[in-house]
């Protein structure tokens, strides 16, 4: 009973925070809402017996990455996003409608395929550090290594983007403001 209540509270706050992330106009508030959303997700992971993932979620996403986000937002000195013209025109409404239809569709999908079916409780030790470590170096070793490649590629890419000469940096700055 209590776990169900916690689940609903976490889910509700999570969805609310996600909505706030995309609707608020102040970038800092958006980033903070995203942190709240990620923290609630971490709570959901913890409920699914994935304690390690929950801790990582807090440490890496809510902690490191979002702090970086906030730094960037503040360094760029972004003010409130200006209200786009024709904010509620037909096309936007249509896009929203499609997204909403997709949401309903997804709900029906999950309800039809999983409704009433229970996959059972996780085995003891699932989601523990040992279990994850073991999987990471056996079944998912290749994926683990490929992710490190991916990160290396990303680092090289970032270095290249930032290592531009003064001329092209100037051009990029002009492009950003136009």
């Amino acid at each position: 009973m209590l776990t169900t209540a916690i689940f609903y509270v976490l889910s509700f706050v999570c969805i609310l925070a996600a909505l706030m992330t995309v609707t608020l106009s102040n970038p800092v508030s958006c980033a903070l809402s995203l942190i709240l959303c990620l923290a609630c997700l971490a709570g959901l992971y913890a409920q699914l017996a994935a304690g390690y993932v929950a801790v990582l979620q807090i440490l890496i996403y809510a902690g490191a990455i979002m702090v970086l986000f906030l730094f960037v937002v503040m360094l760029l000195n972004l003010s409130d996003e200006e209200a786009a013209e024709g904010r509620y025109d037909v096309i936007r409404g249509l896009k929203g409608l499609i997204c909403f239809a997709f949401l309903v569709d997804l709900y029906v999908l999950v309800e039809v395929s999983l409704g009433g079916r229970i996959y059972g409780c996780p085995a003891p030790g699932l989601g523990s550090l040992e279990a994850i470590g073991e999987l990471l170096f056996t079944r998912y070793m290749v994926s683990f290594e490929v992710i490190s490649l991916l990160l290396t590629a990303a680092v090289v890419g970032v270095v290249l983007i930032t290592r531009k000469g003064p001329a092209s940096a100037l051009a990029a700055g002009r492009g950003g403001s136009s």
Partner: peptide
């Protein structure tokens, strides 16, 4: 992961030198 690894460098290549 394979598709990400093949796309990500191209995202950078497509734009980093262009003016």
């Amino acid at each position: 992961l394979a598709i990400e690894l093949l796309s990500m460098p191209l995202y950078v290549l497509a734009g980093f030198a262009t003016t």
